[in-house]
Simulated assay, not measured.
Amino acid sequence: MAITGADRLMQATSFHGNLPLVRRLEAVGFRAWPAASVVYDGSWQVRLTGGHPSKRLNCVVPLDPSDYHDAEVRIEKARKRFEHYGRPLVVRETPLAPQPLLGRLAQSGWEPFETVQVMTADLTVLELPDTLDHIPSHDVGRFIDVLLAVQGDDLSLKPALAEILTAIRPATGFFTSEHATDGPLAAALCVQDNDLAGILSFAVLEGRRRQGIGTEILSAALRWARISGARSSWLQVNADNAAALALYRKLGFRNAYHYRYWRQKDSTV
């Protein structure tokens, strides 16, 4: 039986698995959630966004397992850059991170503090509704209003989120669910990058979870992506979010790899 590109996306199941897959998903992830400032120190990507505290937008991401020379000097250089932005230094460890670098971080008083699971699904075989219950919008402002309301986030984040979302270059679909009297119920962002579709900023109002709303809006986003030409989908979810993991697995997502963040033990991240 022939192995399709979508099949290959499902083959990486361990932390040190399919590095080409990791590189591709990291690349589309960067494009799907762009930082305001991106500079490179060798193969280390230094991402900073002054207006938004997201760790994914404010971290150092080593992208070559062999690139760990002058690590102490480069870490200190990054620290100064983060201080200029008023941010604590955070390192994001993926399977592409050099193991000697992680060893040096541990010896220098750093510690991992959050693990995120990256999952993929083959859209060519996923069972999805025949019709779209939710039509994607291109109204960035409205989407942000719904997302902030559903997540209970500070409204002051709206300008930064607007800057991030308008900076996304691949095709985007903003999906929202609202009730006439109850207001915003759910939100999901789908970013289609060639044959890959990423699900980001997915949230369901706390009091309306486990009622099928999340499945409904995610299914609509995935069907839109498939109609638009995507063959595979990916997403990122905190490894301790059991409810979300169960929902994604039910929909057909499987583990691809995980990453985690590192900070110094006295950091306030």
Rank of each mutant, 00 (worst) to 15 (best):
residue 48 L to A: 05
residue 265 K to Y: 04
residue 256 A to H: 13
residue 263 R to H: 05
residue 124 T to V: 04
residue 267 S to V: 09
residue 116 V to E: 06
residue 104 R to S: 04
residue 88 P to Y: 13
residue 98 P to W: 15
residue 61 V to N: 09
residue 148 L to R: 07
residue 236 Q to W: 05
residue 222 L to A: 01
residue 232 S to E: 00
residue 197 A to I: 05
residue 197 A to G: 02
residue 191 V to G: 02
residue 119 M to T: 11
residue 74 R to M: 03
residue 207 G to V: 05
residue 190 C to A: 14
residue 223 R to K: 15
residue 2 A to M: 11
residue 219 S to R: 10
residue 93 E to T: 11
residue 38 V to F: 09
residue 82 F to R: 07
residue 160 A to P: 02
residue 82 F to W: 08
residue 50 G to A: 11
residue 96 L to C: 08
residue 50 G to W: 06
residue 210 R to Y: 05
residue 183 G to E: 11
residue 84 H to F: 14
residue 78 A to S: 14
residue 187 A to N: 07
residue 208 R to T: 02
residue 139 D to A: 00
residue 104 R to K: 15
residue 151 Q to T: 11
residue 70 D to C: 03
residue 8 R to M: 06
residue 132 L to N: 08
residue 14 S to I: 10
residue 146 V to E: 07
residue 199 I to Y: 02
residue 46 V to E: 02
residue 123 L to S: 03
residue 81 R to T: 03
residue 118 V to F: 02
residue 265 K to N: 08
residue 30 F to S: 01
residue 162 A to C: 11
residue 23 R to G: 08
residue 263 R to W: 05
residue 54 S to K: 07
residue 90 V to W: 09
residue 66 S to K: 12
residue 95 P to R: 04
residue 258 H to G: 04
residue 113 F to P: 00
residue 262 W to E: 00
residue 174 F to M: 01
residue 80 K to I: 06
residue 208 R to E: 08
residue 126 L to V: 09
residue 131 T to G: 00
residue 268 T to A: 13
residue 91 V to Y: 04
residue 137 S to T: 14
residue 211 Q to Y: 10
residue 112 P to I: 11
residue 54 S to C: 10
residue 186 A to H: 10
residue 42 G to C: 03
residue 129 P to F: 10
residue 89 L to S: 04
residue 148 L to Y: 10
residue 174 F to R: 01
residue 89 L to P: 06
residue 134 H to I: 12
residue 173 G to M: 08
residue 61 V to L: 15
residue 162 A to Y: 11
residue 125 V to E: 12
residue 60 V to T: 03
residue 70 D to T: 03
residue 194 N to P: 09
residue 231 R to K: 15
residue 227 I to D: 06
residue 189 L to G: 01
residue 46 V to R: 00
residue 68 Y to I: 02
residue 41 D to Y: 14
residue 211 Q to A: 12
residue 178 E to Q: 09
residue 3 I to T: 13
residue 191 V to R: 03
residue 153 D to G: 04
residue 19 L to T: 07
residue 130 D to L: 14
residue 216 E to L: 06
residue 128 L to R: 00
residue 237 V to Y: 07
residue 34 P to K: 10
residue 44 W to F: 08
residue 33 W to M: 00
residue 11 Q to D: 12
residue 145 D to P: 00
residue 12 A to H: 14
residue 190 C to Y: 09
residue 236 Q to N: 08
residue 267 S to A: 15
residue 205 L to S: 06
residue 195 D to H: 13
residue 165 L to F: 15
residue 95 P to W: 05
residue 112 P to A: 12
residue 174 F to S: 02
residue 139 D to Q: 05
